[in-house]
Write a protein that binds this DNA or RNA. Structure first.
Lengths: 135, 135
DNA sequence: TAGAAATATTCTCCTTTACGGATATACCCT
DNA sequence: AGGGTATATCCGTAAAGGAGAATATTTCTA
């Protein structure tokens, strides 16, 4: 993997926030829309960019597409994600994202409940998922 | 300091190589030209970019302008420079740069002899500096 | 003061990138 | 099959970034 392509991916704020979130757990597109308050096309295109450059992997789960960091990440990526986590710890933008992530997962009936081994408390049925579009 | 601006500086190969060199010691423009085999305007503009974003500092020494990492770098910069060094250790491009750096300093009569506390062996008089343009 | 060397800036051209609207595709449910 | 939801892609536009030629600026030296 080229080091440059890692940095190219990190040098946009939206992608930086996406990767920071993914360094904590896999998420699907609708979560990013909600957490980052950004339109679908914007999120989708940045995720495509990250996937083209091999910084994220996808897996389909019914109608949802789940984005995650690579299962076997290159050393450059591992090092930089570690560095990113360290740098983000005190930055308001990123800590707020984490808070919104927890909230989004709690309100969501999507397929991520047991995705990374820890069940989401307050997981709702799919039929109740529409509450998201109202908040 | 904004984390984004660090990554924006790191996402160009020329700047990446410049910063990697500077993580080892201060250098002046003519050294970058020689080490990176790049025209003066290219080096100068990338250095200006880095300075605008506070990733490097300059100091004039006669006709030379010496570039160095900030004396008191932001934590984001420190972390990323450390990460960069780790990532570069095995990459041929960067190790070759270090070799050319040692050679360039040995051939150079510029002001960097005692700049970072370790004298350059083979330091020549200024009057002999022109030998650089021949090799 | 003239000239040479080191470095910076201006100008122009070209590529990449970010954005959002509209639309297409894939999947689920009935 | 048809409708709804999640996601991706196509389009045009605007801005940023990178390259290099020419030129300007600063400094040293004679």
């Amino acid at each position: 993997m080229k080091l440059i392509q890692v940095y190219k991916c990190l040098c946009d704020e939206t992608r930086l926030r996406i990767l920071h979130l993914l360094s904590h757990r896999p998420l699907c597109v609708c979560h990013f829309q909600e957490i980052l308050h950004a339109p679908q096309v914007k999120i989708s295109k940045h995720l495509a960019y990250l996937r083209e450059h091999a910084l994220v992997e996808t897996r389909r789960e019914g109608a949802w597409i789940i984005y995650a960091l690579p299962a076997r990440p290159a050393p450059e990526l591992t090092a930089n994600m570690k560095c990113l986590q360290d740098c983000c710890r005190e930055k308001a933008v990123f800590t707020a994202d984490l808070r919104r992530m927890a909230k989004a997962l709690a309100n969501c009936g999507g397929p991520l409940g047991d995705d990374c081994g820890r069940p989401i408390s307050g997981l709702l049925k799919k039929s109740a998922r529409r509450s998201r579009s109202g908040g």
